[in-house]
Design a protein around this nucleic acid. Structure first.
Length: 546
DNA sequence: GTAGGGTTAG
């Protein structure tokens, strides 16, 4: 490698020709071998090309007297990839150094690392430091501060910085738009958007995203259509918006129209399908993406696993599990482990789920619930109860969802006493107000085990109106246990709640039929026709309650 | 003299 003069301008192209991190390592070794590791020009290029924070630090630490330039480059790398504390330590090290002093280039990165974690107090101190350094009038410093206060939802402070800026550009204005949109103040966001002298693509995207996040899809789409130009971000923002409200047809249409598809766009569509009950479609899109050699990231894999959980296919789950383990994605992340456990548990691979679960350094409520639900789905209610108790013994505080999971498990396994116990525990020990779902579980549990009177009393004691499916569960049980009188009362409530639902009429009529009350049978069937509802075979929710 | 900073999507 020709490297005679350390400050040779061709050094940049030499470093740029390092295609992989491995090449860069080789080049770095060469630099050290030649004794050029003190050359700031070479080191700055190496730093900007280094892929990881730790590697950047190792290059940096070879330099005896790092300059302000080098500190600034490293602080920027830290502000993008590291925790606030590491960035701050670097800043303190810089201030103590005799060869470097913070300047106007230092602060934007430092402020950014405060914004990343919404460190309001620390950011204010950094702002004071910038003022003492005499760099607070810099447009980059000002814009970073506007963004920082916006991210911390302190729009009065953001406004103050913005108003006091001696010079503003499209970035400063956009930061204000983003800030207002973030706190839900769409009026002011729009006002800034209209007032600003120049708007760029980022500004438009930010405004569209603000409207999407506020749930105003119509205005967002209107603005999207008015955009002078659109990039993949513009499309992704809208696709995501449609996916969030469940309008997958519009999301798909825009996805097809998007001229470019990056990982965010694929992710928006896949997670949209996964979250809106179309898991097969999610898997299809994933395979399409994969065939185009786009490498999925952990967000996409989490969506895919959620889709698999819904499909419940063991083969598919095994394939995804293998795919994930062979990929470069770090499967140590809580989010990934949780999704893996959930998928394996729901698809019936309890051994794999259990191993993942037990190997976790610390188990949280989410992973416990995945395991409990998996056991419950596969008819292992007693084990589910055991696991729930283990969770309590570990000192974890169950939330509403956890109680829904355990009550469902008890209901499906016919564990009446345990179900009652957990229902009471929830109310008394954790002073939680049972939700409609919790009541519905209990009604279902009591109904299935033949305690129809208790179920009826529970329904009537509810502080809020139960949803129809809870009454439906009881009506189904009335049929099962031949309870004509109670069935009549319950059916009457259901007719009021859902006059068009044929299921209740069908159930009541078959209760009469089973009791040989054919006259009543005919009356109900007539009433059903009169009200214009038809029996839709196999589609009614009642089929769940047989 | 080379090299360094701020705004958008999960």
């Amino acid at each position: 490698m020709p490297l005679n003069s350390p400050s040779n301008p061709s050094i940049r192209s030499l470093i740029d020709s390092c295609k992989t991190v491995g090449h860069l390592y080789q080049f770095h070794a060469h630099v050290i071998h030649k004794g050029f590791e003190q050359d700031h020009f070479i080191v700055s290029h190496l730093l900007t090309r280094s892929a990881s924070v730790s590697y950047a630090l190792s290059i940096f630490d070879c330099v005896f007297t790092p300059s302000t330039f080098l500190y600034n480059i490293l602080i920027k790398i830290y502000s993008h990839k590291s925790k606030f504390h590491d960035t701050l330590s670097l800043f303190i090290r810089m201030k103590r150094s005799e060869h470097a002093w913070p300047d106007k280039y230092t602060y934007p990165s430092l402020i950014r690392s405060c914004s990343n974690e919404c460190r309001l107090k620390e950011g204010e101190i950094v702002q004071g430091s910038a003022i003492r350094c005499g760099v607070s009038d810099d447009i980059y410093v000002g814009s970073s501060l506007v963004d920082f206060y916006g991210k911390c939802k302190e729009m009065l402070s953001a406004r103050k910085v913005f108003d006091e800026m001696t010079e503003r550009n499209v970035v400063s204005w956009t930061a204000m738009v983003v800030g207002y949109a973030n706190v839900g103040d769409l009026d002011n966001a729009r006002r800034m958007f209209v007032q600003m002298p120049v708007r760029n693509l980022t500004t438009w995207n930010a405004m569209v995203d603000g409207l999407v996040k506020a749930g105003d899809l119509l205005s967002a789409r209107k603005l999207f259509d008015e955009m002078p130009e659109r990039d993949v971000v513009s499309f992704t923002v809208m696709i995501d918006g449609y996916a969030k409200v469940g309008d997958m047809a519009s999301a798909r249409a825009l996805f097809e129209k998007s001229p470019e598809r990056d990982i965010f766009a694929w992710s928006a569509l896949i997670s949209g399908y996964a979250q809106n009950g179309q898991p097969n479609e999610a898997v299809k899109i994933f395979l399409e993406m994969e065939s185009l050699n786009v490498k999925p990231d952990e967000y996409i894999m989490a969506s895919l696993m959620s889709a698999c959980s819904q499909v419940g296919s063991l083969d598919l789950a095994k394939w995804v599990d293998c795919y994930l383990c062979q990929s470069s994605i770090d499967i140590g992340q809580t989010r990934i482990i949780a999704a893996l456990i959930d998928m394996n548990a729901k698809c019936g691979n309890m051994e794999r789920a259990k191993r993942l679960f037990e190997e976790m350094p610390k188990r949280d409520i989410i992973s416990y619930c995945s395991m409990i639900q998996g056991l419950s789905i596969h008819g292992r209610a007693e084990e589910a109860v055991e696991l729930f108790n283990r969770m309590l013994n570990e000192g974890l505080v169950p939330d509403e969802a956890a109680f829904t999971v355990i009550l469902t498990a008890c209901s499906q396994g016919g564990l009446v006493e345990e179900g009652r116990h957990f229902f009471e525990t929830m109310r008394n020990e954790y002073s939680m107000v049972p939700s409609l779902d919790h009541y519905a579980c209990m009604v279902d549990l009591l109904s299935r085990s033949g305690e129809l009177k208790a179920a009826f009393e529970l329904l009537n004691s509810m502080p809020v109106e139960p949803h129809a499916s809870a009454w439906g569960a009881l009506l189904g049980a009335c049929k099962l246990y031949g309870e004509v009188e109670l069935g009549e009362v319950v059916a009457k409530r259901l007719f009021e709640l859902e006059p068009k639902n044929s299921g209740s009429y069908v159930l009541l009529s078959s209760i009469y039929a089973a009791a040989d009350q054919w006259q009543d049978f005919a009356i109900v069937r007539d009433k059903m026709q009169e009200r214009g509802c038809r029996k839709i075979p196999g589609r009614s929710w009642i089929s769940h309650y047989r």
